[in-house]
Amino acid sequence: MNDITPEDTADTDADFTYQVDIEDIGKRLDAVLAGQLDTLSRNRVQALIRAGEVTVDGAKIVETKFRVNEGQILTLSVPEAEDPDPIGEAIPLSIVYEDSQLIVIDKPAGLVVHPGAGNWTGTLVNALIHHCGDSLSGVGGVKRPGIVHRIDKDTTGLLVVAKTDVAHQGLSAQFADHGKTGPLERAYSALVWGAPASLKGTIDANLARSHTNRQKIAVVKTSGRHAITHWQVKERFGPEDQPPLASLMECRLETGRTHQIRVHMSHINHPLIGDQDYGAGYKTKVNRLEDPLKSIIADFPRQALHAGLLAFAHPVSGETLRFESPYPADLEQLFRALQKF
């Protein structure tokens, strides 16, 4: 892909720029842009085109059916939303590390990272505004102050937030580099159904909004956004004389797309336990189990995914900071029950 803007930052779609790839030749302008943006529907993209918010090689284009050519530069500007500005809320935070430049949070399940449709209050941003006051970096914008990367609402674990613009820029550069030239590491623990035949592997599969359900992400053969997940089986669960019921996998991200691990695991037919969006078809497996494991899995309220390792270079001192988070109580209970199976 030929994205011009840095990846894996706050994922803002304002002033998005994309260079048309060979696979996009002859496609409609609205289709190409919608395929590159995770957070905008095709209808929204079409409305922005008609409103004059899109240029092709610097020329304003208002025709949604405009056909693009390889190498053209597409630029989309999204007007600032009129949504309410977030306010501070006294929401408890599990702070792993904090200094004048940044703060590392161990996020619980159920906490949305930043305000958005249906979640204008009760988010991590609201909690950070209350805790940090005016010290949060403004680079992420009013709605996402200090936010450098995200994890899903029901995924637990570590994320770093910038308190100054200098920290925000330094951390964003590391996430855009994917750890290729620095110490950035992100590792997730995932409890999945079944187990791959091999012990480790890599999933390289582009992701885009599903055409059938815009709330979900899907693997696509063409267009979409480049996504790479490296995985390793750490433990298999189940009787030795039977195929594994489940396994513990460590997933390391080379990119940071919306729902990346969840979709990639489902793509290789090993969806996360508890994932109602990408693993609902495995509910029948639960009914064949016996208690207490049956009840524990049936009652597990979320995808079994935990961001347990985060390492990066301090954006000011250059010191390598490395943090590990133990399983939260619900994931620990599920893990122990699987070990006894």
Rank of each mutant, 00 (worst) to 15 (best):
H264I: 06
V139W: 01
K153W: 07
I73P: 02
G116A: 15
I87C: 06
N119R: 12
G279W: 02
V68S: 05
I151P: 00
D11W: 11
R150P: 04
V219D: 02
A190L: 08
S247H: 08
Y97E: 01
G279M: 06
V220K: 05
Q36F: 00
I147G: 02
T55N: 09
D152K: 03
A298Y: 09
A90Q: 11
L310W: 00
F175W: 15
I49C: 07
G88D: 01
V286M: 01
P315F: 05
H114E: 04
D165S: 06
Q169E: 14
T9N: 13
G133C: 03
R144S: 04
D277Q: 13
Y327H: 13
G26W: 09
V148E: 05
H226Q: 14
E290Q: 13
D152G: 02
D13P: 14
A311F: 10
P301V: 00
A127G: 09
K60A: 12
G201T: 08
Q169A: 15
Q215I: 00
R322M: 05
D106H: 08
V32S: 03
K65D: 14
G281I: 01
D154K: 03
G256N: 12
G224S: 11
E185V: 14
V104H: 12
V192T: 06
D152Q: 07
I273Y: 00
K163M: 02
H267D: 11
G318L: 07
R42M: 08
I95K: 05
S198M: 10
T222M: 08
S266G: 15
S135P: 02
R322S: 15
L331W: 03
T121K: 14
D30H: 02
R186G: 00
P239R: 14
C251R: 10
D154E: 13
L334I: 07
F237D: 07
G194W: 10
V20R: 01
P239S: 11
A218H: 09
K283I: 08
I129P: 06
F237I: 13
L253I: 08
Q101R: 04
G26E: 06
S77C: 06
R236S: 11
V161N: 11
L158I: 10
G110C: 04
L248C: 04
P244E: 08
